[in-house]
Amino acid sequence: MFGDDKVPERLLAALRDADKGRILVPPEVDATILARAKVNLARGRKHIVIPWVAAAAALVIAAFVMFTPTPKAREDVNRDGRVDIRDALLLARKISSGETLGSIWDLNHDGRVDHNDAAVIAAQAVKLTKGGAS
């Protein structure tokens, strides 16, 4: 007696025989299927390449923005990346010490480097408007 998972060889052979219809696939069908499949494969690769290219471009731009040094403001005397009252004080100190300063520090363009130039930085640091608020 056989269970459901084991059947006589005779039945197996008969089942295989009943199922043996073979279809020959014409070469033109092969060619058509493979040509269309290759189009799909190429399209799939294009889809995967575009996001990579976009991501790479975004990375390059981000790196450029992050690592390209921004031009420092002349007023940033101590080169700490911002213009604040410390820059005004530092320039004032340099002027007071009699240090020879280049025309780059002539911030108010009056032909001289003096405390008025330090005042320009101070005004910028506290964002005072001309004729300023009290």
Binding site: I23, V29, T32, I33, N40, L41, G44, R45
Partner: peptide
């Protein structure tokens, strides 16, 4: 062919199956 019992239908299924398979790539 086992399912359809029709040669032409079986060839159509062959095409659909491999096109479906090809769309799974890459990945």
């Amino acid at each position: 062919f086992r399912f359809t019992g029709d040669r032409d239908a079986a060839l159509d299924v062959l095409q659909e199956t491999f096109l479906y398979f090809s769309k799974k790539f890459p990945g």
